[in-house]
Design a protein around this nucleic acid. Sequence first.
DNA 1: TTGAAAGCGCTACCAA
DNA 2: TTGGTAGCGCTTTCAA
Lengths: 348, 348
Amino acid sequence: MPYVMVQIPNPSDSESPLPRSVPTSADVARLAGVSRATVSYVLNNTDAVRISEPTRRRVREAARELGYVPHAAARSLRAGYSRMVLTPAPPFPAGPLYAHFLSELQWALGRLDYTVVQYGSVGLHGDEAARAWAELRPVAVLSPDADLGPQGVEVLKRSGARAVVTLGPEAVEGAHALLVDQERVGDRAVRHLCERGRRRIGVIVPAEEGLDVFSAPRLAGARRAVRGTGATVTELPLAHEEQDAARLAARWRTLGLDAVFTYNDEYAMLLMRALQDEGLDIPGDAAVIGADDLMLGRLLRPRLSTVHLELPSGRDLAALVDRAVHDPGGAPERREVLGAAVVHRDSS
Amino acid sequence: MPYVMVQIPNPSDSESPLPRSVPTSADVARLAGVSRATVSYVLNNTDAVRISEPTRRRVREAARELGYVPHAAARSLRAGYSRMVLTPAPPFPAGPLYAHFLSELQWALGRLDYTVVQYGSVGLHGDEAARAWAELRPVAVLSPDADLGPQGVEVLKRSGARAVVTLGPEAVEGAHALLVDQERVGDRAVRHLCERGRRRIGVIVPAEEGLDVFSAPRLAGARRAVRGTGATVTELPLAHEEQDAARLAARWRTLGLDAVFTYNDEYAMLLMRALQDEGLDIPGDAAVIGADDLMLGRLLRPRLSTVHLELPSGRDLAALVDRAVHDPGGAPERREVLGAAVVHRDSS
DNA sequence: TTGAAAGCGCTACCAA
DNA sequence: TTGGTAGCGCTTTCAA
């Protein structure tokens, strides 16, 4: 074999030794002239073992020089557990409420030394998704996904998840449940309209995909609220675009309604605009109430009545997760977490 | 040794054998009466090796019975690579634009068989954050974070990332760059106002934390646009609340401005409301232009002029990532990706 | 105070 | 067609 592979130094970059392969703790050990064990001790500040200061320095220096970064997978493989909390990306477009809630939660879990990872499980459903999550061996899973079933929970637990928490309308067997009762939103809104003397109430149902997780129960809650009162609820499909709103507004008078719950504040803005353009008076001809209590409601004229929603604080939830991780055998907690309170302004 | 450990069957749940430890491929092999190698072959459909149909069935059956889920970390440790694309959660509150962009990207990368993981690096900054990401050994990193420096890129590459892509105002050495030129937004907006004959232009700068990444360059772009034209730009700090907007509106006439670029549509709505409540005419007394082209702008009266922004399609970007992964040595691409075009409506 | 070595779960090579 | 086995990078006993 007359030819020999040699590493050709890059003349334009004489500083870096260009290690084409990823440095491992063995490389650090070699460079520092110690064993891999010692490297591990030093880099993890293991206090059960005393390492001399000069050695520590040599190790740290070598690690720095090589740009060594420990391999999380190898570490957790060896350790047998991880501190990863997995939150599947929600299948619905996350609104500002949920986004804020999630970022707060991430922060709080970070404080507890967990690593929060949001997993985009596109196109996976039900148990298939659960299996994909389980492959990552998270210590806990926080799932806003509606279609995690008892089977899925079982898969996750069997694969080592010490806590599974769902965020949704109903509890799943074996998992802790943060119950988000969207029906209450519709109930509160429509109850308010009734109290204001309205009887024939429209309820906007967004035509957009993926929102039915919320809109269906809000509608159901609205229906529940009028039961036995003599008032009526009429379902009104509406796409989030001017044209469709104008169409709805145009046939408004023929509908014979005197109030409308608009699913949320954004649809409220859309519909109010269309109704006003049609010459209708709010709240005279139609009382309007939204939900979510976004800033924009306060900026509308008349100011928009709304249902203020409140998700649990990230810190509380992080504490729940931490508790569950420490006591995986504990009885599943189920807690109602969606605060819903009417904010009465001028549109109703 | 007189005592023997036996597995005590749980009488209340005779169906599941309650395996307290996570089943491994060895367990599957044992139950199926084959070797671990065979299990691996069957479960991965390795076509280089022919396994008899009965064996395949036995293995699959055993895996199902045990609820076996492969261990992703072990697999990628063995394989030496992963297909994880890491996207650090942005340090700023993600607006609908970015959220949509990200979900589209996730979908597109999913189609290419990558696993997209959003990592919440709370409180970590610069190289420290880069090191934390590197521990996960992602095959690619897409960072919207402004403070990833050349050092951070180097750390990531050294730890095996085959592609690092930044999404931000300027390119980082060694990384592919999707250049988001926020200055252009301010430039387009103010240029438009000038074309409409306005000379004394206010520019809203949000008081909220974290938004300066966007607001500072938008302001700079505004300044650039008036350079040499004789028009002036006045910086107007504004918090996103009614009170502050009212204060600003109250002293509006004393400011002597005839137009305002409001940073984005939401601040536009806020300010327009306050100005109108103050009795000012839009666009008569003050022309207003926002940015982001949100739906709400079309619902304001007068309809809001705005700067329509366009991020690249998820599919394009996924393709870029895939290309970069396949050719890690290739020259870093830098591409201007923020489309910014004025949409002229009635407020300016 | 340090080192040798086992083993976490998995896959891929080589042998049978 | 199947099994044995080495080894990915790491931590942690146990010995020296």
